[in-house]
Write a protein that binds this DNA or RNA. Structure first.
Lengths: 70, 70
DNA sequence: AAGTATAGTGCAATTTAACGCTCTTTTTGT
DNA sequence: ACAAAAAGAGCGTTAAATTGCACTATACTT
């Protein structure tokens, strides 16, 4: 997944769960500013930050071999 | 994947490809120090850094729903 | 249309990742 | 066992992420 896809995935998932940025930031323990920047494509979060956010959304970061279906 | 799993995945993949940290760092365009710190569990890389490393190893970062098999 | 909730931005301070250099430790090959 | 290669760690500098606060813009509701 490219950067934009990761963003869209997080944002989409948050919206699907009907959680506001504010709530998600609080639950994840990251600054609201940080989340806003990430979702608006202006950020380059640390792995830890992304992990905390993903976790609250019931998601996890994984690494997979590319082109497994090509 | 937890932090340690991500590290193990990267490191394991690099070793499977028989690439040294030095070569990987160069190919990925990240500092050798940065890669060393990450692989030794002392780092918290940015998403971009992890992405560059993964990319060279033929891997990609993805987000998936947790507990899909529980 | 007005009002409220939610999202995005500018600014500035603090923390920390990224990085190179040097050195030590560990692993690998002969 | 020795030598060479690779990995890990200390130290200091630079660049960037994190964060809060205040403000603006957009979306949503009545």
């Amino acid at each position: 997944m490219h950067f934009n896809e990761l963003i869209k995935t997080i944002k989409g998932r948050r919206e699907a769960l009907q959680v506001t940025q504010e709530t998600l930031a609080e639950l994840a323990g990251v600054g609201l500013r940080t989340l806003k920047q990430f979702e608006s494509g202006k950020g380059n979060p640390t792995l830890l930050t992304l992990q905390k956010i993903s976790d609250v959304l019931g998601m996890e970061i994984c690494l997979k071999i590319k082109n497994y279906n090509a």
